[in-house]
Amino acid sequence: MVEKVEKRAIVGWRNLALGCAILEAGSSTQLLTGTWRLQHPVIDQQLCNRCGLCYIYCPDMAIIKTPAGAYEHDLNYCKGCGICAEECPKKAITMVEEEE
């Protein structure tokens, strides 16, 4: 199961680095683009044949391969674009509306 990431990079203007500079590498992992999402994907693990096309097509690297070989979405970063659902040859992924 993918763990939820705490927002650390998003600070108030008084704590922002001079000129909005980024002083450390890897800060984009702290920007939770999953908050932009209107729909989230749900995988039917019974239908999934582990082909990995969703993993390849995902533009945000928001699909994780588990040690057991299954695929899961990382909802910290999944923007809900639906490409994985569109490309899945087994129609194992469905997009579900986010609740208010």
Partner: peptide
Amino acid sequence: MGPVGVPEVYTEA
């Protein structure tokens, strides 16, 4: 220097 200012930081910048 000069990264994208996503909506979460543009106002503060």
